[in-house]
Design a protein around this nucleic acid. Structure first.
Length: 722
DNA sequence: GTCCGAATATTTTTT
DNA sequence: ATATTCGGAC
């Protein structure tokens, strides 16, 4: 067995060998934490002779889980098959699959994806006669997710709701949960919450898993939410062998419930804990690391930690300033091309704050014929045809899944429109049965004869497929569905480019099912296993194409590394995002995101900003990002030249004469970033951003007393000073 | 029941 | 700029 620890540093060795009791590993970026984790597991297996079934390792992504499995296997050979190395969610699915009946759910439950969630919420809004425009489903889903992450059940949410809109949202949460229950459906948050509920209600089940998982590892601990925290604590309570790894400086998922205090307070939870800090960075050159350290030091909410690197200074960081997002893209492409002698494209990545920023870069890459891959664009599994097919499979497994049933009832068109479906739904709701069951009574609820016949045909189709499903592989079942539902015929009949591509995607999907069929025998559980596997994978997992420049959001880049990294759009309002720019806590999270982005780079780091860019169809100018200002000039090539003051925004603007046709307050006045102004009511302020042109131009002004306001340049009662 | 054009809303999102 | 969504015409 390859358990050569001689290449490890002192802290790493200690982390590997501290197997008993709670252990907190604060692992800085690039400090080799995966290596430590995998070696620790190998050490437990090899030296400590812990049976593999007693080890649990939890990650957030399938990719991380797969990688860890492979690396452990490489260290210990086979024999680790019965070890659970999985994500939070797939662990919970496995536990719930055999135990969810204890808490009253069907064991063939479906898993809702965000699209399904949205349609449930829309249904609820409709039934409550509420306007979707006033109540954005996203907010409601966010509310529900928050509550579930806090382990707050609907009843408690209702009684605790103090004011609007919580009073309403908590009621909708209650509706939502009732609907899911009736559909035998769980959302992602339920997987965690209900596992905890199961453990609370059935101590025997909990104890079984406590005994099984005597050594627990949690990766990316800074990203755990409260529910995940509770779950881990339940499991670790008996043996207290819990090893958590994380870096509070890389906590960037607060907006989805990640609670940074879980890692910061670990020592309070486990006073006997050993704490090890890994500060030796093996990834980046010194200049890159110095820049990252300089940025993160501006955060107050952190434990001081400074990464060291054994590598030399390396080239300086390089700042690129362009006029527009197109100019930015061209500058990047220029650098990519000149670097391509030394580096392969796959060693380069372009990181941006928002997905929308990818467009300009993508365009430029296409024009230059440079291969690239984009992470997180239009997701394969989000495509309509894939979701439709999945809905057929879900209904075959669980006919009471109204959410999926509704998706397919008229796809392909069967002449079963909203009228018919509404009647079925209303009947189902009145009598507490599913749509599928309601169909059997459709004769009596005012549905026209022709529609009844069509409904019966659909029932026959689905029941026939359900019957067959027991004897077929998933690939064969998919073919049966496509054939007998008429879905394939529908697409073939369309003859459009789009339909052709949909057909191709369905074929592509079969490579996924074939892979699944290779690993799984035909059994009664096959379809359930397939669907719950599928619900928990994302495309990031399947991107195994390692040629081409990588384009992705900074969030998506966490955990990855590249020789050459471009961090783009370093402008106030873009990054940090305008929405957080004046909230200290959220600003610190943005800064951590900057830290994550910078520390992805091994050898070369390019920073880019544009003097103006098109946002939502309007041209916007913004001053350089404060995060850029926080990097010492001595580390950056090209920074001293532009200085980073707001004046370059002015330089650029002065070339373009402004005109105003309408006589207004400020017609003919040209505003530039950095201008001092006085407002009739708000007092003194400085222009921090400009949006749009001409008559509709808007100004972001930071007022000394009144905070930030966005005002119309022409009409605001402001005067330019000096 | 279906289709088309206006109205609307746009951070990030490992599962 | 653009994707989605909704209302009204056919």
């Amino acid at each position: 067995m390859d358990m050569d620890l001689s290449l490890m540093n002192k802290e790493q060795k200690k982390a590997i060998k501290t197997t008993e009791g709670p252990l907190l590993i604060m692992a800085g970026a690039g400090s080799g934490k995966t290596r430590v984790l995998t070696h620790r597991i190998a050490y437990l297996l090899g030296e400590k002779e812990v049976p593999s079934r007693n080890i649990l390792a939890i990650t957030f992504t399938n990719k991380a889980a797969r990688e860890m499995k492979e690396r452990v296997a490489a260290l210990v050979g086979g024999g680790a098959a019965s070890m659970w190395i999985s994500t939070f969610h797939s662990m919970c699915v496995r536990i719930l699959r055999s135990n969810i009946n204890y808490i009253g759910y069907e064991n063939s439950f479906s898993i809702l994806d965000p699209t399904d969630q949205k349609s449930v919420i829309k249904d609820i809004l409709k039934r409550r006669n509420l306007d979707v425009k006033q109540h954005n489903p996203r907010n409601i889903i966010g509310y529900i997710s928050d509550k579930k992450n806090q382990l707050i059940k609907p009843d408690q949410a209702i009684s605790e709701a103090a004011s609007y809109p919580d009073t309403l949202y908590s009621e909708m949460y209650s509706d939502y949960q009732r609907i899911l229950y009736r559909n035998s459906a769980l959302d992602f948050d339920d997987l965690i919450m209900l596992t905890i509920e199961l453990f609370d209600k059935e101590p025997k089940v909990l104890e079984h898993y406590q005994n099984r998982f005597q050594y627990i590892h949690v990766d990316e601990y800074q990203d755990t939410n409260h529910a995940q925290y509770r779950l881990i604590n339940q499991l670790a309570k008996k043996y207290r062998n819990i090893c958590v790894v994380g870096d509070s400086d890389q906590s960037i998922y607060k907006f989805r419930g990640a609670d940074i205090t879980n890692i910061l307070n670990f020592e309070d939870d486990y006073p006997e804990a050993t704490v090890i800090t890994l500060e030796q960075n093996y990834r980046s050159s010194k200049n890159i690391l110095d820049a990252a350290n300089a940025v993160i030091e501006n955060n107050t909410e952190r434990k001081p930690k400074a990464l060291r690197t054994a590598r030399d200074g390396g080239p300086k960081l390089q700042l690129m300033v362009s006029d527009s997002e197109r100019g930015e893209a061209e500058t990047i492409i220029g650098n990519i091309q000149s670097l391509s002698d030394e580096h392969s494209y796959s060693d380069m990545a372009v990181l941006y704050r928002t997905n929308a920023q990818s467009r300009a870069i993508e365009d430029a890459l296409v024009k230059s014929n440079i291969p690239y891959k984009m992470v997180g664009g239009m997701k394969f599994y989000d495509r309509k045809e894939i979701k439709d097919l999945m809905s057929y499979l879900k209904v075959i497994l669980n006919p009471n899944d109204d959410i999926s049933f509704e998706r397919i009832v008229n796809t392909p068109k069967r002449g079963l429109g909203p009228k018919t479906i509404d009647k079925l739904k209303a009947h189902g709701q009145n009598t507490g049965i599913s749509i599928f069951e309601a169909i059997k009574e459709s004769d009596f609820i005012g549905i026209p004869k022709t529609a009844v016949v069509k409904l019966m045909g659909l029932v026959d189709l689905l029941e026939g497929l359900k019957h067959k499903s027991r004897f077929l592989t998933i690939t064969e079942l998919v073919d049966e569905v496509l054939k007998h539902s008429g879905y394939r015929k529908m697409l073939e009949g369309e003859k459009s480019i789009e339909a052709t591509s949909r057909l191709e995607n369905l074929e592509e999907f079969k490579t996924v099912t074939m892979e699944f069929d290779r690993d799984n025998e035909i059994s009664d559980e096959l379809l359930f296993t397939f669907l719950s596997d599928m619900a928990l994978v994302s495309d990031q997992d399947s991107v195994e194409d390692d040629s081409g420049v990588t384009l992705m959001t900074m969030h998506a880049s966490k955990g990855l590394e590249f020789k050459v990294v471009f961090v783009v759009g370093l402008e106030e309002g873009i990054f940090p995002s305008r929405r957080v720019a004046y909230d200290d806590r959220e600003l610190e999270e943005e800064r951590r995101l900057m830290y994550v982005a910078l520390t992805r780079a091994e050898d070369r780091l390019f920073l880019s900003r544009a003097n103006s860019r098109m946002i939502f169809g309007k041209t916007e100018s913004n001053i350089q990002s404060r995060f850029l200002s926080e990097i010492p000039e001595t580390l950056v090539e090209g920074k001293e030249a532009v200085g980073g003051s707001a004046s370059d925004g002015m330089k650029k603007r002065s070339g373009k004469p402004k005109r105003s046709r309408v006589l207004t307050n400020n017609s003919g006045v040209t505003f530039s970033i950095g201008d001092k102004v006085e407002h009739k009511k708000f007092g003194d302020g400085i222009i921090s951003g400009i949006k749009g042109e001409g008559d509709s131009q808007e100004l972001d002004i930071v007022f000394t007393k009144a905070g930030v306001k966005r005002l119309l340049a022409n009409f605001a009662p402001i005067e330019k000073k000096e």
